[in-house]
Nucleic acid binder design. Structure first.
Length: 833
RNA sequence: GCGGACGUGGCGAAAUCGGUAGACGCUGCCGACUUAAAAUCGGCUUCCUUCGGAGUACGGGUUCGAGUCCCGUCGUCCGCACCA
């Protein structure tokens, strides 16, 4: 028997699938539908192992669904706008489009080389006008629907690169490329009203049963809904109209308040800075403080006593000092808080530092003393004390009582506050979707008329000077106002690339030329049945896509609320790290047997970590595929590690996978058609069909792989028989979604009809799933002493008798009778001695 | 700091409902085939000294019985991060 030639077979069957358009989805098929989607890649240059793992998982599911009679939509495209293309343009002088399209061509060839069952007829790239033009139309729909607005907002501004930076691009207060100190700058920016949907997005999470709990929790925290009281403190001297509004989730502790703190950029603080130099200095100090996590961790809580006082709402005679504090955020709540030191750690630290009263108002067990001692604020449940009318209530009652009173007396009201902010989508960059708005001095922001879409990016741009090429382009932005005809300018900002990825799954489902999607067709496919990608998108992308879909529903364009019914977040591909004696990182090919090949010097083998260029522990999939073939790589990606966990790449592992491909080939091609039966093997085959199906549907590929190994070994050990031949046939069908090339080659060699890609998943004979014998464990005091093989369904008495008759048990009992006998039918007998 | 997940052999792991811990793979060792090697095939591979015992991070608890449930401790990883 000849060895299986993977490279030849890969090329042949990939050509065959292409030519027959095997994986093109039919919008009009009467079959049940399955939409399987993996997060589309950014065309950075070459695919990496993470892509291979992600797309292999989706591919197995897609191919399995085809076999179980579904019309499968499994598309692929490119998240093609974004900064790396502009960086490449700056470094290499190539146009971002040239760079991006070349990368797409390379990566598409690499994906094809892996034999994924993708519908390439629906391929899309977000950087092409036939995609982003429709996105502009949708943006204008949302604009017309009142979900888009423009406001001045603070951004991170890199004064050297003359561009806005995302928070992630600010490292220790400096621009990640230029190293320049980042400034806060106010710019007019476009926002999408995601906060309108905050409740809906939060409540909708409960319905997403097939999402990981972790992701739902992350989104829940991100939305950050809290209930509390927004109320005002009247500023003294009395009679003045001025008030400070605060938000508190603990109105029950209002009698424990000992100060009010406002943000450095609160209007009252700013007004004060106009007249008082020391206040202005303090505010400047607050703003100079870093905003990175590490800096916040160590930063001291600072306050500035404004000398202002406010009146306590429950007691006109009681006044509280007003501080400006560096820990109060203008962006959250009202930008002012009431400080209750006894029941908030941060307030306690602050009060101790500035000598303010610390008054207990919630009892901690028996402790009701008015002066709060101790280093930790008490935030637990308890009875309200030292609070006049509230005394004796529990925390929840007191909250209600204070809110009721505030509402009755008109100084406050119960409110819901969110951590979630509206989505700022303006980016001062070239390589993105132009925002289809024209600014006219007379008419304001005017939408570009539909017939003028798409607003395309000009090709003649340069990146040799910093700033936005669209803004400095000589002609592009100068247009007539669509409304009044006067000279006007285009918006030169482009959309956040997260907008591009917020609806691509809809465009995959339906892509007419003249509009973003056909509603009826899109609704036939959506929601995506199974979405697979990295957990790094757990919040932003997935939340934005959920918002966008709801927004389309809100304006009546699509009757789908949740875009992704099932979500799976796969683990990373990791690898050992290697370091030379002088500390240089070494790549895997530079190392053999703990020795650096070039120098012969020993190498320090480091932790297994995520593949990264900086640690040089990446493995390029392409040469691996060229060496072992696509199936071995796919099989390895599915083996061993549970898909949600990290997968350590190893040379031994890929070789093991390659051996299995060869072994599978041998089993199914050298399989003689013998006579007679082999009932045990037949049963195993049927059980494996059932179990592998369940494993694939649960995305537990590692378990499916283990079962297939077991079946393969059993077939190898079996004598030729009709059942053995049938079991080999079953094995071939079950492995086909995972290793489709060798499966096609073997299918053809065995004379199978058509393609195995079009074959049906094997039927299960329920009679083959029942066993007439079971292995029963016999324990003494819970410890295993013997196992017995008994007929299935044997009565308890029979089990007990068989157990007591066992030699090992008789010996272990030493003639004593058990005090008690526990019998679990078909499982075990436990003798309590 | 807050929230969450996890901790099982030399390694990746499995163990459906509380019921035979370590399936399956990798590595390693022994053997067969071979002039030899590769490939392939067979066997062994949790630990301890044998009978046997111990063992799922550690310490307790519930139970006839705990990897699984409860309490506590330690450790690792992830998310958020001054959110009032």
């Amino acid at each position: 028997m000849s060895r299986y030639n993977a490279l030849k077979a890969d090329a042949h069957w990939q050509g065959e699938w292409d030519a027959r358009r095997t994986f093109a989805a039919d919008d009009h098929s009467p079959k049940p539908r399955a939409y399987v989607l993996e997060m589309f890649p950014y065309p950075s240059g070459r695919i990496h192992m993470g892509h291979v793992r992600n797309y292999t998982m989706g591919d197995v599911l897609a191919r399995y669904r085809r076999m179980t009679g579904h019309e499968v939509l499994h598309p692929m495209g490119w998240d093609a706008f974004g900064m790396p293309a502009e960086n490449a343009a700056m470094e290499k002088g190539t146009h971002p489009g040239t760079w991006t399209r070349a990368n797409i061509a390379t990566m598409k060839a690499q994906l094809k080389r892996l034999g994924f069952a993708l519908d390439w007829t629906r391929e899309l790239a977000t950087c092409e006008p036939d995609y982003y033009g429709h996105e502009q139309a949708l943006f204008l729909d949302l604009f017309a629907g009142g979900l888009v607005y423009r406001k001045e907002s603070a951004v991170n501004w890199d004064p050297v690169d003359m561009t806005v930076l995302a928070n992630e691009q600010v490292i220790d207060g400096r621009g990640w490329r230029s190293g320049a100190l980042v400034e806060k700058r106010k710019l007019n920016q476009w926002f999408l009203k995601i906060t309108d949907f905050a409740d809906d997005l939060l409540d909708g999470l409960a319905e997403l049963k097939d999402w990981p709990d972790k992701v739902r929790l992350m989104q829940e925290n991100w939305i950050g809904r809290s209930q509390g009281l927004t109320f005002s403190f009247q500023l003294l001297p009395a009679g003045g109209e001025e008030r400070i509004d605060v938000y508190s989730t603990r109105p029950d502790t209002i009698f424990g308040a000992s100060f009010v703190a406002i943000a450095a950029d609160h209007p009252i603080a700013r007004a004060l800075a106009e007249t008082r130099e020391d206040a202005a200095e303090f505010i400047a100090r607050c703003k100079a403080g870093g905003t990175t996590a590490a800096e916040l961790e160590t930063q001291e809580k600072l306050g500035f006593d404004t000398g202002l006082t406010v009146r306590h709402p429950f007691d006109p005679a009681w006044t509280l000092p007003v501080y400006i504090a560096n820990f109060v955020l203008m962006e959250y709540g009202t930008g002012a808080v009431m400080g209750v030191p006894a029941h908030d750690q941060r307030d306690l630290d602050f009060a101790r530092k500035y000598g303010l009263a610390v008054r207990r108002v919630v009892s901690d067990g028996d402790r009701t003393d008015p002066v709060f001692e101790g280093d930790e604020a008490y935030t637990g449940p308890g009875t309200i004390v030292n609070s006049h009318v509230l005394d004796g209530m529990d925390v929840a009652e007191a909250k209600r009582a204070v809110i009721e009173r505030a509402e009755a007396e008109g100084w406050g009201s119960g409110t819901t506050v969110y951590r979630l902010r509206d989505w700022g989508v303006s980016r001062q960059r070239y390589w993105g979707t132009p925002i289809p708005i024209i600014h006219c001095a007379a008419c304001g922001a005017v939408p570009v008329p539909r017939e003028q879409l798409p607003v395309t990016l000009p090709e003649d741009v340069t990146f040799d000077v910093p700033g936005n090429p669209l803004d400095r382009h000589p002609t592009w932005k100068h247009v007539a106002c669509p409304s009044c005809g006067a000279d006007a300018v285009r918006e030169t900002d482009t959309l956040d690339t997260f907008v591009d990825s917020s609806w691509y799954f809809i465009r995959f489902a339906s892509q007419p030329d003249d509009r973003p999607f056909d509603r009826a067709v899109a609704e036939r496919w959506l929601p995506v049945g199974q979405y697979i990608g990295g957990v790094e998108h757990a919040i932003l992308h997935l939340l934005y896509a959920r918002f966008w879909t709801r927004a389309l529903k809100h304006i009546g364009r699509l009757d789908i609320a949740e875009p992704f019914a099932g979500l799976f977040t796969q683990g990373m591909v990791t690898h050992e790290t290697y370091r030379a004696e002088d500390g240089r990182w070494l790549s895997p090919p530079e190392v053999a047997d703990g020795i650096e090949i070039a120098t012969g010097a020993p190498v320090t083998i480091g932790r297994v970590e995520k593949m990264s260029k900086s640690k040089k522990n990446t493995v390029d999939p392409e040469p691996i595929v060229d060496q072992y073939g696509a199936d071995a790589v796919r099989w390895f990606m599915l083996s061993d590690s549970p898909p949600e966990r990290d997968l350590p790449w190893s040379e031994a592992g890929i070789e093991g996978a390659w051996r299995f491909v060869q072994r599978l080939w041998r089993i199914v091609t050298t399989d003689a058609e013998g006579e007679g039966g082999d009932i045990a093997l037949r049963k195993l085959a049927h059980r494996t069909v059932r179990d592998v199906a369940a494993d694939i549907e649960a995305l537990q590929f590692n378990k499916a792989v283990a079962r297939l190994y077991t079946l393969a070994s059993a077939i190898e050990k079996a004598q030729p028989s009709a059942d053995r031949h049938a079991a080999a046939h079953t094995l071939l069908l079950l492995t086909a979604p995972m290793v489709p090339h060798v499966a096609e080659e073997a299918w053809a060699a065995r004379g199978g009809a058509g393609l195995i890609a079009d074959a049906a998943w094997p039927e299960i004979d329920p009679a083959m799933l029942v066993d007439d014998e079971v292995t029963v464990a016999v324990q003494i005091n819970g410890k295993l002493r013997d196992t017995l093989t008994l007929p299935k369904g044997a009565p308890k008495e029979a089990l007990e008798a068989a157990a007591l008759a066992s030699d090992k048990i008789v010996r272990a009992l030493e003639g004593k009778a058990p005090r008690k006998v526990i019998v679990v039918p078909d499982r075990l007998v436990n003798l309590v001695a």
